[in-house]
Amino acid sequence: MLKSRVITALILIPLVIAALFMLPPLPFAIMIVAVCMLAAWEWGQLAGLNSASQRITLAIVCGAALAALYWPIYTSSLPLLAHPVVTGFLLAALGWWCLALLLVLFYPTSARLWKHSYLLRLMFGVLTIIPFFWGMLALRQYGFQENNYTGAWWLLYVMFLVWGADSGAYAFGRLLGKHKLAPKVSPGKTLEGLVGGLATSALIAWLFSLYVPLHISLNTLLICSGLAVLASVLGDLTESMFKREAGIKDSGHLIPGHGGVLDRIDSLTAAVPVFACLVFLVF
């Protein structure tokens, strides 16, 4: 298992970084649509859609909806963040993850409100996947007219932030972890691990502010980064909560050694839109 995880990571990480810096806006958007369709396919299982035809339909509807929303914006002369559809979904992400925090904090009691409703679980999927799509595009296309790589650095930063915080949380949790963070949702996570992840993210923010052209004050970057890391932990816990209710360990088996697409992007589905919303709309 560990060997396949490492091999897969060594293959995927360079491909992801290359896509960030080399793909123009439209091909990049198409790639993210494909990722979101795979995520929707897997979310269908969390929502209780057990037949393959239902889940395929959900993935197709997701892709068609994202394409229909994106095309008028792509052909418009206005910047991405000037469109109310984009800003609306980014702001909706803040509301959704605040609600998700309550669902996690009061689990399993909170599950009584939604576990028997296909509609609610599908709506939770919409609020997870679509803001993630717009957050990825908003970060990638930021400053694109002046410098094609500005947005790529922003996205790379958020990814390194989440990956680094996750690794820091794992290391600190293994060494010092004693107090469970959310034992009813994910027994392996600890408060000590959370503090270690936040400390690691602060170090990454400081290093990026020194050597990468993000053009943002360190204080603002630290605030946005800290909140994004907290959101990433919440994204992980929320998916774990839905998987626990669905009675499954992994959301899928598409990525060898890593489970499904949702298992790999669960933290990013929260961190990316929250970070984009804080940087672009709040600060």
Rank of each mutant, 00 (worst) to 15 (best):
L156F: 08
A202M: 14
W134R: 09
T128G: 03
L222V: 03
G168H: 11
I56N: 01
I255K: 14
Q141R: 11
L203K: 01
N147K: 12
L156R: 02
L103T: 00
L102G: 12
T200H: 01
H258E: 04
L218I: 11
I60H: 07
I265H: 02
S251E: 14
S251I: 12
S186Q: 04
G173L: 03
G135A: 15
G226M: 06
M159F: 14
A82M: 15
M159V: 07
L222S: 05
K189F: 07
C62Y: 12
K189Y: 14
W154P: 01
G247F: 08
N50V: 04
L278Q: 07
A29L: 11
K3V: 13
L230W: 00
A171V: 11
A19Q: 06
L113C: 04
V16G: 02
A64E: 12
V272Y: 13
R264P: 04
I60N: 04
N50D: 11
Y211D: 03
A34L: 12
V272A: 05
I73P: 09
S251T: 15
I73Q: 06
S201Y: 09
Y70N: 01
L176Y: 01
M241V: 02
W154R: 14
V85P: 00
A199D: 15
F275V: 05
H253F: 12
V6A: 15
L80M: 10
S76M: 09
A228S: 15
F21I: 12
L127M: 12
P273A: 10
L222Q: 10
W134C: 12
M136I: 02
I32C: 03
A93S: 08
E245L: 03
K184R: 15
S217I: 05
L23A: 11
T269H: 01
W41T: 00
W134D: 06
L262Q: 07
R5P: 07
L234N: 13
G88V: 06
S117H: 06
L46I: 13
A52P: 00
I13H: 11
T190H: 05
D263H: 09
L113H: 08
K189Q: 05
A47H: 00
A100W: 08
A246H: 01
L103C: 15
R264S: 12
V272P: 00
V33E: 05
Y70M: 06
W154Y: 15
G188Y: 04
A202H: 12
F28H: 06
K178S: 11
L80W: 14
S201C: 06
L90M: 07
L58M: 06
F133W: 00
S53V: 08
E239Q: 10
I129K: 04
G151S: 10
C277Q: 11
L102Q: 12
A205K: 00
A59P: 04
L102K: 10
A111R: 08
N219Y: 08
D236G: 00
S117Y: 05
Y170S: 09
L210F: 13
L234A: 10
A18N: 08
I56H: 08
S51C: 05
V212M: 05
A182M: 13
